[in-house]
Simulated assay, not measured.
Amino acid sequence: MLPYLLVLSLVIFWIVLEKKSLNRTSFWLPLIILTLFAGARSYRVGTDTGNYTRNFNSQLNVEYFRFNEDIEFGYQVLEYALLSVTSSYFWLLTITSLIIVYCYLKSIKRYSVNYWFSVFLFITLGVYTFFFNGLRQGLAMAIFTLAVPYLLEKRLIPYLLVCAVASLFHVTALFIIPFYFIVNLRVRPVYKILATFLGSLLVSGVLVSYISSTNDRYENYAKASEEAGGFLTLGFYTVLMLLIMLVSYVYKIKDENFQKLITFYASGVVFIIPLAMLGTSPSGPQRLLAYFTWTLILILPVMLKKINNIYLYIASVLLFLTYFMLTTSRFSNLSPYILNPIFEVF
Rank of each mutant, 00 (worst) to 15 (best):
V239W: 02
I177Y: 01
G126L: 08
I299A: 02
S329T: 15
F56M: 09
L5S: 13
K305G: 15
T233G: 13
C163M: 12
S283V: 03
I297K: 00
V239Y: 01
I99Y: 03
P178L: 02
A290S: 14
L105E: 10
L278C: 02
V345A: 13
V187T: 12
F117N: 08
S9A: 14
Y80W: 13
F65N: 10
P336W: 09
L83Y: 09
Y111S: 02
A38L: 09
L202E: 06
I177K: 03
I143M: 11
T96E: 05
T53Y: 02
G284Q: 03
N215A: 01
F132M: 09
N23I: 00
V270R: 07
E69H: 13
L6W: 09
N61C: 12
S118Y: 07
I299N: 05
E344I: 04
S21I: 14
K19R: 13
R136D: 07
K154Q: 05
E79W: 08
Y311T: 11
L198M: 13
S58L: 13
I99S: 03
I182M: 03
Y4R: 05
E69G: 11
L275K: 02
S204T: 15
N309P: 03
A142P: 10
A40M: 15
N257T: 06
M277S: 14
F117S: 01
G230L: 03
